[in-house]
Design a protein around this nucleic acid. Structure first.
Lengths: 206, 206, 206, 206
DNA sequence: AATGAATGAGCCTTCATTCAT
DNA sequence: CATGAATGAAGGCTCATTCAT
């Protein structure tokens, strides 16, 4: 066995890199900075990761697999009626989750926005989450025909741009929003949920 | 005597910088690259702009003033009834405008997403646009009391996260979305407008 | 005009680089070392040369053009009889020249020896020199038909491997040879010239 | 108990290193690359060899001892007459041998060319080979007085620069020569042997 | 005999910035 | 206004080497 456990070091580097990348972006974060923050030698990062790009990709892949596991574990309560209350509490949970994974989401979005950047991780993540929801809906109501490619695309687009994006935008910008407009965090959250209910969630009722 | 009109050079630099910053982000774009692309000497950029930061700020300020002028020029048609049709065509125009200013919007959003980045330009832009809309609504219906700070904030938040963000997300990501899901650009636009109508625009009717 | 003359700096860098590359080879010489030895900033080397490779290539090209000029300037004494004496003194001059350009020759040869290295400069150099000689011989005796590709190749090969290579080997290794065998420099030169006369030069008489 | 025979591993490493060093030179070849190519762990190389320098030295020593054995095994046919035919076939064999040991010869020569590099291996190798030849000649004709230091040196120099160097140059550069001049390998070999016969070998007759 | 992890120095290269002209 | 030259710092990456196991 080597001096220490390489797996732990790798995870440590990934964690620190996730934090720093989300703060300053890919180009704004140097390997040096990551190494210092992780308390490891700069060269060691290149022992564990091919290059800087590989670091981001590893981070992004990790959330993909996390979501993948989450999705496959999630139990769908067959019989439940959908009502506004339930949806709202579900949204609150989703926001909470996004808040925990804020950094990686920020990273994904920033990468997707660059012309040359990778958007596949953002879309894949969103797709997985949305697919799960679709499955739930289909099972309950049979209203969405997932076999119909066109229909599926339409559904994904709807969910992504009017559901997913507002939520992650809110999570990523909430703090700065409150600073800029000088308002209360909690109240802002309530307002957002109210807005979101009146817009996107509205399409999940009736 | 100057070789060419200094003002034109400045504008040329700003234009090129806007393009490149939006493609690779602030840190991913070097002054060297901007100079080459603009066909000017690197040193000249430092004649026109204090430093790199000043370049971005100048770009961001320029869109602020552009919107400012647009807003103040815009005539509000007093009597017009609001109906779904009119709203949709208005949205199409807004999307078109965003598409033209895509690059600068991308830049603003990318900067806002970084922890250490500036979000004030993004918010200010959005605020100006939303304020104008609010004024229009107030005039027509008096339903929003802009003097009520709380109410105004609630309205801004609603517009920003469920109106503005979906639109700019769509504009910035549409191309990559179509690539990723292998779908048609025009149809995608139609779907988006339909979704947007059923969610956000819905709150502007009734 | 800039602070100093860029051309001079460029030449200075080239000169220093030629020296260092010949001493330690391409990979054994760092840009840092070159910069220090040339008394310039490391970054400046990248202002004048695209990259490290470009530095070597520039050096190698410079000797090509030097030889090119030399060759085109050289006057061929039409009527002169060829005798051993004259040939020997010509060889002495050639050795002298090689000694002056020792470093660059060393560089060319080292590069040519690597599997992935460039041999074209070495061959081109040799070809130019040999071509000139061929022209001289042809003019005097008409014995070599330069139009005959096969004959030309045969001649070049003969000149290169039994004429050119012994000479540059001697020039490049003489010092180490004398160190290793503990012998006198001047006497060694005489011995070499004698050997060279009895072997290669012999084929230029009769 | 060791996983495999340590001796074999050592030989494997030496073989791979010889190949890589000859391709990219000493500085151009990393221990990492050698380890990967040999299919062993990087650290293991340091178990078998003190450091990188020790690796090259081990390689170079191995050819010295190989030649040493070859030389001491070689039987000198006392009575044989020396004629051009015999010499030529001997040269063909020598070229063949050099072709097999091409890589290590390349390495020796490259090292010898650097100012700071070791030339002793190249000279030692050549010396051993030449000494053997001298012994043969002496035995047959008594023309070379090996006891006379001066005479011996003169002979070695002659053999080295007009015999040995042309041959190894040819072997090391033949491929690139043919590429550069677009000519046939076999014919090139014939031409070279012809030239070599008319120059160096000529001094071994009469 | 063999491995994986770790280190520190150094290398090639880029970059924001300055300055003399 | 505009340019070419120059700088110093930093960035990404490689490498020889060591060490615990």
């Amino acid at each position: 066995m080597p001096k220490t456990d390489g797996y732990k070091t790798r995870e440590k580097i990934l964690g620190v890199a996730e934090k720093l990348f989300s703060e300053e972006g890919f180009n704004g974060t140097s390997i040096e900075k990551i190494a210092r923050a992780a308390g490891v030698n700069k060269g060691l990062i290149y022992y564990h990761f091919k290059d800087k790009k590989d670091l981001v990709v590893s981070i992004l892949k990790s959330i993909i697999s996390e979501i993948d596991q989450m999705v496959s574990r999630s139990v769908i309560e067959e019989d439940s009626e959908i009502d506004s209350e339930k949806l709202q509490s579900k949204i609150r949970m989703e926001i909470e989750y996004c808040q925990q994974r804020k950094r990686i989401i920020s990273l994904m979005l920033m990468e997707a926005l660059k012309s040359g950047g990778e958007s596949e991780y953002l879309f894949k993540c969103a797709e997985m989450i949305m697919q799960q929801e679709m499955d739930g809906i289909k099972r309950k109501m049979g209203t969405v025909d997932a076999e119909d490619r066109e229909e599926r695309h339409r559904y994904l687009l709807h969910e992504f741009f009017t559901g997913f994006m507002p939520i992650i935008s809110f999570v990523l910008l909430q703090e700065k929003w409150c600073d800029y407009f000088g308002c209360d965090r909690d109240k802002t959250l309530d307002y957002f949920i109210d807005s979101f209910t009146r817009t996107h969630l509205n399409t999940h009722l009736d």
